[in-house]
Computed example of a mutant assay.
Amino acid sequence: MTTTTATRKLTLEEYLVYDDGTDTKYELIDGELVEMPPESDRNNLISLYLLVEFFKFVPIKLIRHKDTEIVVT
């Protein structure tokens, strides 16, 4: 379920400090907060599969699981 929660456009700075007191995850899309749904079980299984496969080729000290984010424009 994706819903818009803000009525006015937010700046990046406002988004980065936004806290509505819940654990709801939001993305900033064209200045509007959009609620993100929780991860599905399928996504979690894919993530675990990739983690196991990476262990075969990448040193463990270089692997991160669900604690890395990429910021894009």
Rank of each mutant, 00 (worst) to 15 (best):
Y15D: 00
S40A: 02
P59R: 08
L45S: 08
R64C: 08
K9W: 04
T68Y: 05
Y49N: 09
L48P: 01
S40F: 02
R8Q: 08
L48V: 07
V71I: 15
T3N: 11
V58N: 03
D67C: 13
T73C: 10
H65Y: 10
L28F: 07
L33V: 04
P38Y: 05
I63P: 03
D20C: 06
V52I: 07
T5N: 01
M36W: 11
E27N: 15
Y15M: 04
T2Y: 15
L28M: 02
T73V: 01
K61C: 09
T5E: 15
M1K: 12
R8H: 07
F55E: 09
L48W: 04
L45P: 00
Y18S: 10
K56F: 04
T4M: 07
E27L: 05
T73H: 11
E27A: 14
G31A: 04
L28V: 05
E32G: 00
E35F: 03
L50D: 10
T7I: 12
T68A: 06
N44Q: 14
L10G: 03
L62V: 01
L12F: 06
Y49E: 14
I63Q: 02
T73F: 05
L10W: 00
M36E: 08
T22I: 00
T7N: 06
I70A: 05
P38R: 07
E32T: 04
K61I: 06
V52Q: 14
I29F: 09
A6Y: 00
E27Q: 14
N43S: 12
D23E: 14
D30R: 06
E13Y: 02
F57I: 04
L45T: 05
D20Q: 07
E53L: 11
P38L: 07
N43E: 15
D30H: 12
F54L: 13
